[in-house]
Every structure is written in structure tokens, then in C-alpha cells.
Amino acid sequence: MIRFASLGSGSAGNALLVEHGASCLMLDCGFGLRETVARLQRLGRAPSDLAGILVTHEHGDHVSGVFRLARKFGLPVWMTHGTWVGCRESDNDLDLRIIDSHRALSIGDIEVQAFPVPHDAREPVQYVFSGAGCRLGVLTDIGEPTAHVCAMLSGCAGLVLEFNHDATMLERSAYPASVKRRIAGRYGHLENSVAGTLLGKIDCSNLQALVLAHLSERNNHPELALGAATRALGYTAEWIGVASADQGFDWRSIG
């Protein structure tokens, strides 16, 4: 069984917990130290429970809290070389471990497979977590799906998938034209219908839990994202959820 929960998901900050066996990993940390500890407590966890922190890319909403948390509690941090260069952070007193974006690694009881994604960062990746034959795929911060992304996510029992914005809401927003182009571009974020199309392309026959994540608070509504997801799957299920910026989502189990 794999368990997973979110401390928060959105442009203000992101962090996800993944547990299997005796191991608990944090994926990204875009919150301050005090806020991170408080959000961990809400989920019944403490920094001392973590085996380490994996990082997807160097944008602040994913990495701004990583290094203070890692240094204070002596946690190892895994990221690609490009992400490390993009962070511009000193490695003093930091247990930094550079990963290959195509090679799996084992961290305690969890097998972790990174995979590259198109996003406007130096070497961004997303991850699939495996244990006891069960797989959890995480995909946020991606401009457009690729064949490799579809292959990585096919057959997963759980998915945390970006449904970032609604095309009409983004177009009508007060954002500058350059920001709109960035968000909607090949290296930006997934629009609801594009995320739905991705769901339609991958093998969802084993899917037990789906959480829609990284929703824009200005350019999306949970109802719009849920509508796109259920249309893509062809049915509504109680295990489809939406992550919030403030609360993330509570523990879910697959396997």
C-alpha cells in the first residue's frame, strides 16, 4: 500500500508526502519552515518522520522551503543537476544528492523514478513512486504531455495530476499578454481540457485515486477541472479529488 497527502498545492506553495512501508518522502517544499511544520502536524507527521526531500524544479513555489527544512533537520535532498544550478544555493551543511532524470533510485522502502517534462525550468522532472507492485504518478508543472510522460503514467493506481487553468478564464484575466503566453505555452502549465486529453491517452484501468492539483486560484474553478476529468474518464468516481492551496488534501491510499 502507498499512502499520499498534500500540505498544499498551488502558486503559493507545494508539498506532497508519499509513504510506503517505513519510509516517508516529501516531494517539493514551497512553504516557510514554521508553516511547513504546522502543515505536517495537520497530517500527523513531523520533519523527523521524513527520509528526505525530492525536488521537481527550482521555481519558488516548489523549492523555497527545501533548504531550511533540510538543514535544520538533517534531511537529504535529491534533485537534477540542472535544478541545483537553477537554485543558486550553497551546498554548505546540505546533504545534496544529484539524480539522473532517467534512472530509478531506491529510498528506503520506496522506489522512485524521475522523468523529464517540458516546463520553463533548467532540468525539470516529475516522479513515479512504487512499492509492492503499486505505483503513484505525480505530474504538475508541465506545458504539454509527451509520449514519454504518457508511458510513465500508464497503469498507475494513483495520480496527482495538474489541472492548472481554464483557457477562457486565462484569456479573460488581467494577466499581461506575456504571462498568458507563458502559462498556456509548451513550457507552461496544463489547461483543463489538455489534462483531460492526457487522461484519455494513458492506461487508467488500475486507477484507484486521482487528485487534480496545482489549480490556479484566479484562472480555474474546481468544478471546471472536475468536469474535464470526469468527461475524460467517462464516469464520476468518489476517489476523484481536488487539492487546495490552503489544505492540500488528506491521506489517500492505493494498493
Results as ranks from 00 to 15, higher is better:
L233A: 05
E19S: 14
I2V: 08
L210D: 07
N192I: 11
S11K: 10
T168V: 10
S173A: 09
P118A: 15
E191W: 08
N206C: 14
A157I: 06
R231C: 03
L199Q: 06
W251I: 01
G13E: 01
G255E: 01
G52E: 07
C204K: 06
L50Q: 01
V242L: 05
H148V: 08
S216P: 01
D246N: 06
D141L: 07
V242G: 02
C24I: 14
R172N: 05
H189P: 02
L69C: 11
T140V: 15
L198C: 13
D95M: 06
I240R: 14
I53G: 02
A147Y: 13
S173E: 07
C150S: 14
D95A: 05
K180S: 01
L75Y: 03
E223C: 10
I142V: 10
G74W: 09
R186M: 06
D95V: 09
G185A: 10
P47D: 00
I98F: 01
A15P: 08
L69D: 08
G108P: 03
T197E: 15
L153M: 09
N206G: 05
L33G: 06
H189K: 10
P116C: 06
Q126R: 15
S130Q: 11
A121Y: 02
I183G: 11
I99R: 03
E144K: 09
N92S: 10
L139M: 13
G13K: 08
R71V: 09
I202G: 08
L153E: 12
Q126M: 15
D100I: 06
E123W: 12
A132Q: 12
G52R: 14
E191C: 13
L7V: 00
R42P: 03
L139W: 08
Q126D: 13
V37D: 12
V18F: 10
G196T: 14
G196P: 13
A157Q: 15
G185N: 10
A70N: 02
F67P: 01
L159E: 14
L105R: 10
V194T: 14
M79C: 10
S106W: 13
T197M: 04
A157F: 09
A157C: 06
P47R: 00
G155R: 04
G21C: 01
V18L: 08
C87L: 09
A38P: 09
I240T: 08
R88N: 08
Q113K: 12
A12G: 05
E217V: 13
N92H: 12
G248H: 03
M152T: 11
F249K: 02
G86N: 12
G44C: 00
L7Y: 00
L43G: 04
V117Q: 11
A195Y: 14
N219D: 13
A12P: 10
E223F: 13
S90Q: 11
P222E: 04
L215G: 03
S90A: 09
S244E: 01
R45W: 07
V77W: 05
G30M: 00
P124W: 05
N192H: 15
C156H: 12
C150K: 14
S173G: 12
S11N: 04
L69S: 07
A46W: 13
D28G: 01
V63R: 07
R182K: 14
H81N: 05
R97G: 07
V128G: 09
E223A: 14
N220V: 04
